[in-house]
Simulated assay, not measured.
Amino acid sequence: MRREFPSLSSDAAAVRQRIEGMEKILERMFVIPGINKPVGLDVLLDLIPGVGTISAAALGSYIAWEARNLGMSKWQMVRMGGNIGFDMLLGAIPWIGAVPDLFFRSNTRNLRIIKRHLDKHHPHTKMIDAPPRSVP
């Protein structure tokens, strides 16, 4: 008997967990002290000219690929692709491209699109999000 790992399942709840985890790694891995701005791998990769921007876009595309497997509409997929493409254009500017990436978070935007779809079509996957902690 073959057992699948729950995290590798195509179940909507498992997909939701994976994309939320990937978004956290790409956009909110740690907080910059002093300005309390979350930063992730996406911004760090933008500091590497060329290869970093392409790598960040590829990782962001994974989220869109998971969304496609959920049966999302073509319009939603186009919006997510546009977010990834715009983020890649911003990141293509060496060093300076990381600054706008702090404010235009394509992966967070795409996660919001996916969550709306999941909440509507797979309501059993909905999780209660903890409110953000305030920093004294």
Rank of each mutant, 00 (worst) to 15 (best):
V43D: 02
K74T: 12
K37C: 04
G21F: 05
V135Q: 10
E23R: 08
H122I: 07
W75L: 08
V15N: 13
L70H: 04
L47P: 03
L44T: 01
A98D: 12
L118P: 08
H121A: 07
M127K: 10
S134P: 10
A56W: 03
L45D: 00
M29I: 05
W95P: 11
I19A: 05
L44S: 02
L118S: 03
I128E: 06
G50Q: 07
S134N: 07
R28P: 02
P38L: 02
Q17H: 14
L111V: 05
I96V: 14
S10H: 09
H122D: 13
L47R: 05
L90R: 04
A14T: 08
R68S: 07
H117Q: 03
Q76Y: 04
I113M: 04
A56G: 02
T53C: 02
R79S: 09
I113R: 01
D87V: 03
S73N: 03
Q76S: 13
R16C: 10
G85H: 04
G97Q: 15
K120H: 08
A92S: 15
L44P: 15
P131K: 01
S106C: 04
A67T: 10
V135H: 12
G97K: 13
R79C: 11
L8N: 13
I93C: 13
E66H: 09
N107S: 07
R3L: 09
F30D: 09
D42Q: 04
I84M: 06
P131W: 00
D46H: 08
P49E: 03
R16L: 15
A13T: 12
K37Q: 05
Q17L: 08
Q17D: 14
R112M: 05
G60N: 12
V78K: 10
L118T: 02
R68C: 05
T108W: 00
Q76I: 13
N110I: 08
F103V: 10
D129I: 06
P6F: 10
S9M: 11
I113S: 01
D46P: 01
G85E: 06
G82V: 12
Q17K: 11
H124F: 14
I25R: 13
A57P: 01
K126E: 12
L41M: 09
